[in-house]
Design a protein around this nucleic acid. Structure first.
Lengths: 220, 220
DNA sequence: CGCTATCTGATAGTGAGACTATCTATGATG
DNA sequence: CATCATAGATAGTCTCACTATCAGATAGCG
């Protein structure tokens, strides 16, 4: 397969493919002559993975590079690789809002209450603290009343994710499953949450027969 | 309050505040003389809201502008405003992957199965279809096996969200609650899901006493 | 063999997005 | 009255993700 065909197959422009190769996201084609290279199904898969992570997951080129580096290290202890993948996936914010310390304590408290076996310094714990501090900062500090409901939901989701990953781990790389499940799974979850909002408020709307309070009440 | 104090209060640089005013995110200060204006607590709140939506929620300036336009329209039917807010919040992707049609049917089927009162053309339904098509495209089409678990989780989350919004709707604007709850809530949910992944795999890890398959097994 | 489409590899340019710098004229403050 | 901050305007910067253009070299068809 030559680059033009790869481009047609995936819908990615030829110069963009070259760009990804330069950026180290995609391995170069196998040179069959000084100015001809051939690409295979692995390239197609990889390219689709890249676009999925970028378009759907919203990752930047450099984040994708880090993620793929983790995906491509079959040696090294598995949990290290997964940790690196998670780290690369987690968007790091440089901001330090006011109530961050307090929010961190809230997160630690939640983790303790749920009995979760997680490091309180995990980047995701920090990300959560930042989000909670933002709620606080705009006067919606009472959001933490819903945290336990969220935690219930997350436990269920995590169990499903774990089972899914375990089910097709052998197919084509464990780490890739985790990355894809995490990044694209987020997108699915967010979209579905909005649909559930619409449904929930539609029900309430019908019952009340009057436009009361509800999130996402609008049909398009 | 003058602009310097507003800047110190919120941690946003003065030229950036001016930029937001130019861009229509923030109302201008009340002019007390041709070259002095005064800002109040409303500006502080609004500025923190803007930064929260951008830094934590990842919205662009133009998305924030649309969202705030919805927040600032107290007239007009409530559900219309909420619909506009949701629309502005939903990231629209211009891509049209291959299995999109099939994915759309999968979403419609899910909605039917759950008995959700939602328009199948809702932007979030489309976003979900795009994500599912991406799973398919990289050979993980079996992800749809977890959709019902996700849906259970989302129903729970949506119920909690609805209750929360209803609880503090009077405080300071219903639409703002919805927007904040949706955008920042997403961030909380994503972070928490990762923590739950770590926990779930930690448990499995300990039980198996051998590095098996698990998402997010990494420490820190 | 000739011809045109395509390819590699390299360098430079583009357009959007989110600020940031600089400047002028003016007013605030001690 | 000296110093500092401010409004408003314009232009510049920096990053990101491409995209355009070239030169030189095949591919492969008739």
């Amino acid at each position: 397969m030559r680059i033009g065909e790869l481009s047609r197959e995936t819908g990615v422009a030829v110069p963009t493919i070259k760009y990804y190769v330069r950026e180290g996201l995609l391995p170069a084609g196998r040179l069959t002559s000084p100015n001809q290279a051939s690409y295979d199904d692995g390239h197609v898969r990889r390219l689709r993975l890249i676009r999925g992570l970028m378009d759907v997951g919203g990752l930047s080129v450099s984040a994708v590079r880090e993620v793929l580096a983790a995906v491509d290290s079959p040696e090294r202890p598995v949990h290290k690789v997964l940790g690196a993948a998670q780290e690369a996936i987690t968007p790091k914010s440089a901001v330090a809002p006011e109530g961050l310390e307090e929010a961190r304590r809230t997160v630690a408290e939640l983790v303790r209450r749920r009995g979760w076996h997680t490091d309180p310094d995990h980047p995701s714990a920090e990300a959560m603290a930042v989000a909670l501090a933002a709620f606080r900062g705009i006067g919606r500090g009472d959001f933490l009343e819903v945290l336990d409901d969220y935690a219930d939901a997350c436990e269920r989701v995590a169990a499903a994710d774990l089972a899914w990953v375990g089910r097709n781990a052998e197919v084509d790389g464990l780490v890739e499953s985790v990355v894809v499940g995490t990044v694209l799974g987020d997108a699915v979850l967010m979209a579905m949450r909005r649909l559930a909002h619409v449904d929930a408020s539609a029900r309430r709307y019908e019952k009340d027969a009057e436009g009361g309070a509800a999130p996402g009440a609008g049909g398009r």
